[in-house]
């Protein structure tokens, strides 16, 4: 791997949990963009595929103090000690130094699922069945994203095909830098409440870098030291505490 270059960018997300109403639009847009097949006949919420999963967290109080928050969780694109990269036995996972995106290359994947056990965010999904689309829906597949076969792991890659298209577009105009407007993941686009900001965390002028430095911003399981590039924001204390692993929380957990 060539590390002579200074990373061009470190793409990340900031998700404002106070704006998220759990509608699932991001997950649907993601599935359409990335050719995630419809659920197999016998699939459950434990075996289904989704690159973006929305968890429901409750504060555990009873009415009228009960509160709910939704956590949309995709691959957190860890930057340091990336749990999944180091464990893959055959280099099917790596970090793109140009974008900081953690990749998952299905044709190289053996399907051993070691990366799934390694991921603390449960953001990796296994193709338990052959992907099947309803008749004619295959024509609606996104040609820029390869479909995955049975027996391999897949996950969010920040709509990397959109980055590739943006690079090609910039190059056609003789430019090396992409226009940030050209690279926006599908989930960000689809969110009706504009809860998700996306961009280069290393660019101090970007919206995402400004938001990630906000006082109410936090990352999930930050103490594990994996340096995720997905940030969350909330003004509510109990929601922020949900991001920690620490035991000192009072709520009863459940999920959606």
């Amino acid at each position: 791997m060539n590390t002579a270059h200074k990373p061009k960018a470190r793409y990340g997300m900031v998700i404002d949990l106070d704006r998220c109403n759990g509608c699932g639009g991001c997950a649907a847009a993601c599935a359409v963009e990335n050719n995630v097949p419809p659920a197999a006949p016998k699939a459950s919420d434990r075996t289904g595929l989704t690159w973006m999963r929305i968890y429901r967290a409750e504060n555990g109080r009873s009415f009228p103090e009960n509160r709910t928050a939704f956590f949309p969780i995709s691959c957190q694109h860890c930057g340091a000690h990336t749990p999944c990269v180091s464990v893959c036995p055959q280099n099917a996972v790596d970090i793109n130094p140009e974008t900081g995106v953690v990749s998952q290359i299905p044709p190289r994947c053996l399907g051993c699922r070691y990366c799934m056990t390694a991921c603390p965010f449960h953001a990796r999904y296994f193709n338990w069945s052959d992907p099947e689309w309803p008749r004619d829906m295959e024509n609606a597949l996104n040609p820029d994203v390869s479909v995955r076969m049975r027996g391999v792991v897949e996950k969010c890659n920040f709509c990397h095909s959109r980055w590739q298209a943006a690079v090609a577009k910039a190059a056609a105009n003789g430019k090396r830098e992409i226009d940030p407007a050209d690279y926006v993941p599908a989930c960000v686009e689809a969110c009706p409440t504009e809860a998700i900001a996306f961009g280069n965390l290393d660019d101090p002028r970007s919206e995402v870098s400004r938001q990630s430095r906000a006082p109410n911003a936090f990352r999930l399981l930050a103490k594990l030291g994996t340096d995720p590039k997905v940030y969350y924001r909330s003004d509510r204390d109990w929601v922020r505490r949900m991001g920690d692993t620490d035991v000192a929380y009072e709520s009863e957990a459940s999920r959606g």
């Binding site: 434990r46 968890y55 967290a57 603390p120 965010f121 449960h122 399981l221 505490r241 692993t245 709520s251």
Partner: peptide
């Protein structure tokens, strides 16, 4: 579970 809002399974 690792995430707080994930259940024991």
């Amino acid at each position: 579970p690792t995430l707080k809002f994930e259940p024991f399974m």
